[in-house]
Amino acid sequence: MDRFTIPRDLYYGRGALSRLKQLNGSRAMLVCGAAARQSGFLRRAEGFLQEAGMLVRPFVCTPGGPTLALALTGAKAMQEFKPGWIVALGGEESISAAKAMWAFYEDPGLTPRAFLEEGRLPLLRRQARMAAAPAGGGGEAALGGAAFLLDPAQGRRHLLRHPVLAPDMAIIDPDLAAPCSGTILARGGMAALSQALEAMFHGQASLAYPLALHAACVIFDKLQPAAGGDVAARTMLHEGQCMAGLAFSNAPAGLCTAMAAELCVAFYKPLPTGIAEAVCLPLTLSRDPGAKNAAARICASLGYPGECLEALRSRIILLRGGLDMPESLQAFGIEEAEFLSKLPDLCKRLSHTSILPKNRCPTPKEAEELFRQAYYGS
């Protein structure tokens, strides 16, 4: 039996952030990144929550991704403040961090090992509920029951996937994505495209499939004009990315996600997730089961001519180039000596990744071929 879980309430459209003033509660913790503070959206969200009669405490995430240390620090702040609502505002990093903070807040005795390696989750919503408002740049990916957490000390990027991690409320307000630069939109859009395609590859019989198909078509059609500043395209892209995130959290992850996870840990800080996924996605298409059928549906919907899988691969490469994104890790600027020194460990980790079922993990030799293609270009 399968399960399909999304936030109970989704509010979307311009001005949807104002829905925060209708929440019931006495205290709210606002988790966001520096960009939300600089753009003024933190102040707006804080004002709406205060209109609801709440005492509000902001928690601004430090740069460097949603790390285990950040999650534990945030959970400690929550245990002191005792919020009844956790409101995550911003990109995937802020929303993922807020979800991890939420888990450690609900169960102070939860250990990182139990949470990250054993998959143990506390009974959530005993102390707080969660609302999430993505602000472009990949935050849409965390609207469902998915999140990721970095543990640089262990060299791990954990993908957390469980229905209970889906927020109680999602706010999809295109105004939040308006300040995003074209570069940030491009990276978030390519990551969302990867998520939509993987949901199609592995969820042909699931409720996630139509969401993923529509999301992929929207991203192919609207990402480039949105990155160029087209306001209408940005609105449609924001909603399409949210659909991709909801589909991704309700379908198995694929090889592109697994490769990007290992690369983003190996080259921690310099390599954004969107760049890693944009490089890896064309390389992994032919290796994912279900890709051919998914490619046929997308090509039929968008009118792409030619053999479907190759046509889809060509369109991904064309879109990536149109967004001025690097075609390889070498073109991104990672030094060859550093790459080669980390290659053996990358291959070992990918061949044993917990993101994929064991029967779909590449062998060390296959992993080396993939990583070399990602570095030097296919």
Rank of each mutant, 00 (worst) to 15 (best):
K292C: 05
K292P: 00
N293C: 08
A294Q: 01
A294I: 02
A296D: 08
A296Q: 14
R297M: 13
C299T: 13
C299G: 09
S301N: 08
G303F: 04
Y304L: 12
P305W: 02
P305D: 01
G306P: 02
G306M: 00
E307K: 05
E307L: 05
E307R: 04
E307I: 07
C308I: 01
C308F: 02
C308P: 04
C308L: 01
C308T: 07
L309F: 01
L309E: 01
E310T: 13
E310Y: 04
E310H: 04
A311F: 02
L312Q: 00
R313C: 12
R313K: 14
S314K: 07
S314W: 03
S314R: 08
R315E: 13
R315T: 08
R315N: 12
I316E: 02
I316C: 07
I316Q: 04
I316V: 15
L318C: 13
L318P: 00
L318M: 10
L318W: 06
L319E: 00
R320A: 14
R320Q: 13
G321A: 12
G321N: 12
G322L: 10
L323S: 09
L323I: 09
L323F: 09
D324Q: 12
P326K: 08
P326C: 13
E327I: 11
E327L: 15
E327T: 14
S328E: 04
S328F: 10
S328C: 13
L329Q: 01
Q330H: 12
Q330V: 13
A331C: 12
A331I: 10
A331T: 08
F332G: 10
F332T: 09
F332C: 10
G333M: 08
I334D: 03
E335P: 01
E335F: 03
E335R: 11
F339D: 03
F339H: 06
L340Y: 10
L340F: 12
S341W: 07
L343T: 11
L343Y: 06
L343D: 05
P344D: 09
P344M: 12
P344S: 12
L346Y: 02
L346G: 05
C347I: 11
C347P: 02
L350Q: 01
L350S: 03
L350M: 05
S351M: 00
S351I: 08
H352Q: 08
H352S: 13
H352V: 06
H352I: 03
T353P: 06
I355P: 03
I355N: 03
I355S: 02
I355D: 00
L356D: 06
L356C: 10
L356K: 04
K358S: 15
K358L: 14
N359F: 15
N359R: 07
N359A: 14
N359G: 04
N359I: 15
R360Y: 07
R360M: 11
C361Y: 05
P362Y: 04
P362R: 05
P362Q: 05
P362A: 09
T363V: 05
T363P: 01
T363R: 04
P364R: 05
P364G: 10
K365T: 15
K365P: 00
E366K: 04
E366D: 06
A367W: 02
A367L: 10
A367T: 07
A367S: 13
E368K: 15
E369G: 13
E369A: 15
E369D: 14
E369C: 14
E369W: 07
E369S: 15
E369L: 15
F371S: 11
F371V: 15
F371Q: 09
R372Q: 12
R372D: 00
Q373M: 14
Q373P: 00
A374C: 10
Y375T: 09
Y375S: 11
Y375M: 14
